[in-house]
Write a protein that binds this DNA or RNA. Sequence first.
DNA 1: GGTAGCACTCGCGTGACCCGAGTGCCAATT
DNA 2: AATTGGCACTCGGGTCACGCGAGTGCTACC
Lengths: 346, 346
Amino acid sequence: MSEDRRLDVLRAIVEDYVATREPVGSRALVERHSLGVSPATIRNDMAALEESGYIVQPHTSAGRVPTDKGYRLFVDRLATVKPLSAPERRAIETFMQDAADLDDVVDRSVRLLAQLTHQVAVVQYPSLRRTALRHVELVPVGDRHLLVVIITDHGRVEQRTLELAAPLDADVVARLRTRLNVAAAGRRLAELGTVLRDLADDFAPADGPLVRAVVAVVEDTLARESEERVVLAGTANLVRGGGADFARTISPVLEALEEQVVLLRLLTEMAEDESAVSVRIGRETQHEGLVETSFVTTGYGGQDDGGGAGSAVARIGSVGPLRMDYPGTIATVRAVARYLSRILAG
Amino acid sequence: MSEDRRLDVLRAIVEDYVATREPVGSRALVERHSLGVSPATIRNDMAALEESGYIVQPHTSAGRVPTDKGYRLFVDRLATVKPLSAPERRAIETFMQDAADLDDVVDRSVRLLAQLTHQVAVVQYPSLRRTALRHVELVPVGDRHLLVVIITDHGRVEQRTLELAAPLDADVVARLRTRLNVAAAGRRLAELGTVLRDLADDFAPADGPLVRAVVAVVEDTLARESEERVVLAGTANLVRGGGADFARTISPVLEALEEQVVLLRLLTEMAEDESAVSVRIGRETQHEGLVETSFVTTGYGGQDDGGGAGSAVARIGSVGPLRMDYPGTIATVRAVARYLSRILAG
DNA sequence: GGTAGCACTCGCGTGACCCGAGTGCCAATT
DNA sequence: AATTGGCACTCGGGTCACGCGAGTGCTACC
């Protein structure tokens, strides 16, 4: 019993099941793929594959369906890269070309990805931890309020209002702004901690509270991981896939997706993977509501445009049912990420 | 045949149908409401109500279901105000109290509203057209890029990067910043047009392009209605309501909700209504995908905390199925809006 | 190891059937 | 004139039996 053919069979099962959405039987398999053997032989292979946990049958006398483990093997070893079609490439070009500001770029990216994959698309805003600081701006508001605006490398802006005990002195604010920018500009937020703390020494003791408050805000902003935003699109696509067991299958997914914390954890975890495109299948997501979905994500905004580990600034990806077109999704996600990186760099 | 009782019957039908989700028949009606008459009498009233288009029967020999027109009458004349429960009030307090910046306030508001109504909540960001300008900030980036940051009254921030033909002169930028803020601060964006255009005269001809470019950006920002953002929460709640005809009923709703343009049009239209809380029922939304949903919205951020017309800065509301608890939703939306207004004002 | 044949299992779609809820109408009542 | 009780009629939805067909596992054979 050839090991190779058994893998061929698994691949065929995954492909057929993805295409038809129905359990695939031995006969259908030999008809649609030129495997060169009879259904009976396939049945033996199937029995072996089931034994090893790659496939299951929903009930006796039904065809086979891939398990999480089966999909995993397929993704890791069996999937063949599927190049984007010409119209898809064109769609990316035309859709992205006249994006205005960062918000717009991100917005267009998610929508585009959702449309191309017919799934739910996810984009993480450029992360504060990895991006460099471009500028800090202090804007007095009235007498006792100070607006702190933090601007990053990629044009992202965070703002926070500060309420002060003592009235503001315009000179001090101006000096603080200058100092702050000299000290901070160009650095990654992660490296700022120590630099900022020494800053108070340069000012008169009376101004200590102000300086410390501002520094605290800047630090707090970077500490709050919750500030990392994630944007979704294409949730309507979820519905098209599901069968009749909607309420049970879809509702938890929507809940999970709305919960930014869940998404951020997942995206962060996936950033650890070394492969260019990271895939989480079913239970691998480690989340109750997502056991019947898979994630395909990759980094963007790094130096190398491969979306590789390390240098990427944030992630973009697609969420779909277990039975999704993995090769296609992977190709599309990577393509959009690449384009997105290019725009942000330029 | 008493006109009053007929309306009582309609009210009872709406209430029962909302509660049970099933067409309501004459017998059930007399049992659950003390109408003091027999089912046969009710049947006559029902026939009349159907004749007038307030109710229909899904098929012969089924109970009655309210029409759009029926709900409308109910909302306008029959609904009795339903005060919030104590736990609900408490939930609002505790959920909103330690919100940090504007983003956080808005985020908490939608989530809260979604949770309280068990529906989809919608919040429109404070609109640029109505809010006053607080500050414009110009940040040189490298030699030929200028970041323009526009900060509004409510702490909203818009930014745009400008690419320049000539190298930047720091002095000119500083002067422009001052001038800009003197001219613009405190004004509503709608009033800015003329003020800004005269600005170029104050600068040397050589600086004309720079000044004009910056002014153009500021104007463009306010012109782009698309910049108005809308935030959603609770989309998972959509699923709980729907029956078996999911795919047809829910998917288009999700699509419509994701399309900011649609929502913004609707919210803008509803801002015209004079009543404190505005309701759009079914077809009144004027949108294909929303024929089976209703909107309940109100303004927030105005002087009077009633959410009345005119002074409000943006809208907040809830989207649910035709058969939703109108009195409850109206009360909740209003309560959250009021709280939101208070926070923004303080 | 691969193949063919065969008996067995079940899910699913179909059609017959009945029950009950609900209606509309009419005649009787107040 | 409004209300009521009675009654025949309609129809949606649930249940049940049935048969088809897809698919399997096993065993004997090449």
